[in-house]
Nucleic acid binder design. Structure first.
Length: 325
DNA sequence: GGTAGACCTGGACGC
DNA sequence: GCGTCCAGGTCTACC
């Protein structure tokens, strides 16, 4: 008989909407079940991996059923990790502030963006999402869990820190990211990355961003993405998808730099909430094409394209072919 | 400070 | 089936 946890959630929390709000909900060890509307995952806890299923039985409450019994200490850790994933600390008032700036999301209640149970997992996932198509990111995360993760859990920083680059490259196929990921893991192990400082509201965004840029494998895109994963939503994470969004959805034209500048200016009015306005706009474009994210099938299509977390079939441009549709 | 090219992998294409 | 091309963001060397 396993343990069961009941976790209080804000009254406006909706599991299906708030989990299926960012591509990471499709990365191992997380598995969203579109039929039961539950999230299965494996948490790395003190006494070993713990498989669990997260469900919402009623408003304002999340229930988590574990396959094994957890100690008191493990229960506390599990609560903290699940609260982090689901952003349960972001209150109704926090979301109201966002909706006041961007009322387009008030009726749907969007505002929370799914993340990982630990900062380390968020950072490694972000590194695996750089310079690769989404299907490559999915594969890397699956193999990291299979090869390095105990019981299918995401590998811990300690485990990754003592892994050889050749193992990461050969068995997890992370390519040139191998030593960068190991160096990041070593920094976590020796306490060089302080989560409480990164999430300290009294520390300016600029200072955090500059620190993130010094980390191995973290460039401008990854640092900006880490900012939103840390709950700092004032920056856009600019990648190839941003350009696509700027051109196709917002209708900006010109060179890449001009489009990026126009996109930045477009979201300027949303101030401290720029990323959320940008992200939910983009997420809606994905959902218009693919249907609601909570109904996406668990496995992405083999041809899954470039869009982060989206199971789109995108025919490849034939060489020499016309670029027009 | 800005730019070019290398770094890897996997998918798509042409033969 | 095999070889080639391409996309993706970061890092380093160079100007």
């Amino acid at each position: 008989m396993g343990s069961r946890l009941n976790i209080a959630a804000p009254a406006d929390f909706v599991l299906a909407r708030d989990v299926c709000s960012y591509g990471y909900f499709r990365l191992a060890p997380d598995r969203w079940d579109p039929i039961t509307k539950t999230l299965a995952t494996v948490l790395g806890l003190a006494d070993g991996p713990a498989s669990c299923t997260i469900a919402q039985s009623e408003p304002g409450r999340v229930s988590v059923i574990f396959e094994r019994t957890l100690s008191r200490v493990e229960q506390a850790t599990a609560r903290a990790q699940i609260s982090r994933m689901l952003r349960l600390h972001e209150s109704e008032a926090d979301l109201a502030a966002f909706h006041a700036v961007d009322p387009r999301w008030a009726s749907s209640g969007r505002g929370r963006i799914f993340r990982s149970p630990t900062l380390f997992q968020d950072m490694i996932r972000t590194v695996t999402s750089c310079n690769v198509t989404w299907s490559g990111t999915v594969g890397m995360n699956e193999r990291l869990c299979q090869v390095l993760g105990k019981g299918g859990a995401f590998p811990t920083a300690h485990r990754m820190a003592r892994t050889r680059p050749g193992t990461l490259r050969g068995r997890c196929r992370v390519g040139y990211r191998d030593s960068r990921m190991i160096e990041l893991a070593k920094m976590f192990v020796r306490g060089a990355i302080d989560e409480s400082w990164l999430e300290d509201n009294t520390v300016a965004d600029d200072e955090i961003y500059r620190f993130l840029l010094t980390l191995p494998g973290i460039g401008p895109y990854a640092a900006s993405n880490m900012m939103q994963l840390l709950g700092r939503y004032a920056m856009l994470a600019v990648d190839s998808e941003t350009l696509s969004h700027g051109r196709k959805t917002l209708g900006f034209e010109g060179e890449d730099t001009a489009v990026i500048k126009a996109v930045q200016a477009h979201y300027e009015p949303f101030g401290a909430h720029r990323f959320r306005s940008y992200w939910f706009e983009k997420w809606c474009v994905y959902e218009e094409a693919e249907g609601p994210a909570h109904a996406w099938p668990p496995k992405s299509d083999s041809t899954a394209g470039k869009q982060k977390g989206v199971p789109t079939k995108k025919p490849r441009q034939r060489r020499g072919g016309s670029k027009s549709a």
